[in-house]
Amino acid sequence: MGVEFEVKFRLPSGGWHSFRSLQELGRFRLKPLPPIQVHDVYYDTAARELLHAGYGLRFRTSKGRTVATLKTLATVTPEGVQRRNEIEALLPSPTLHVHAWPPSRARDTLLQLIDTLPLEELFVIEQYRERKAVMQGGRFLAELFHDRVELRAGHLTETWYELEVERRLDADEEHLHEIATLLQQEFGLDIERRSKFHRGLKLRERLDLTRLSS
């Protein structure tokens, strides 16, 4: 089981244009990484068994690979650090038949939570991610993402930009705090405490309400 640590920042509707030219941040150096396109689909049962158990299930497809990730719901510190546990399984094909997944802790945990109940799509997130490696003394401490996010639930959509700093395994939480503080102090960025999953659930709730009222 991995543990994800990240801090998010709200950005204006056009994004943060200074991101591309940013080469250093305090004592850290920023190294450009190739941008990526990410396609995420979130699932749960009709009765939301996973959500009630404190989990979210995401299928992420990028560069031709699909990874299923079972995530605990994020806790957020006063400093804005979002922390969650996650279990991953690489899928040969993005099937919702969990019994057909390769043996993994993710498959076993998911079956314990939902047994044979069918999964249904909650919402879809498309992201175009510009990336930079946050380096210090040859150590790769964090990834800095400039994301254009498009969220879809049925016919409802939302689009926004955000900046995300995600800690790498070679770093500790203090590095993440320092990087986040520098971004706040030098550029006046505001912390975003909502996760994409949380925003997706809110949009899905709106969709369900419109379906009930129609």
Rank of each mutant, 00 (worst) to 15 (best):
Q112I: 07
F28K: 04
E205R: 13
P102Q: 04
R83T: 15
E158V: 13
A53Y: 05
A53R: 09
G14R: 02
K31M: 12
R29C: 09
F19C: 05
L144V: 06
E86C: 10
T116Q: 11
A47H: 13
E174I: 09
L30G: 02
L201F: 06
F9C: 01
V165H: 01
R105G: 14
L73M: 10
F5W: 07
L189T: 04
E143K: 12
H52V: 10
R194F: 08
D44Y: 09
D147L: 07
R60D: 04
S214C: 10
R131K: 10
L91R: 02
V98M: 06
L156T: 12
P103H: 07
A89H: 02
G2E: 13
Y161H: 15
I36L: 14
R107P: 01
V41E: 14
A133M: 08
P103Y: 06
G154H: 08
R84L: 15
E162G: 09
E192S: 15
T116F: 09
A106C: 14
H97L: 13
Y42E: 03
Y42S: 01
A46Y: 10
L117R: 12
R107D: 05
R193W: 07
T181D: 14
I114W: 00
F9I: 01
L70S: 04
A47Y: 09
Q136S: 11
E186V: 11
I191A: 10
L70Q: 04
F28E: 00
S213M: 14
E120F: 11
R129C: 08
K63I: 13
G26V: 08
K63Q: 15
I114K: 00
L90A: 15
Y43T: 08
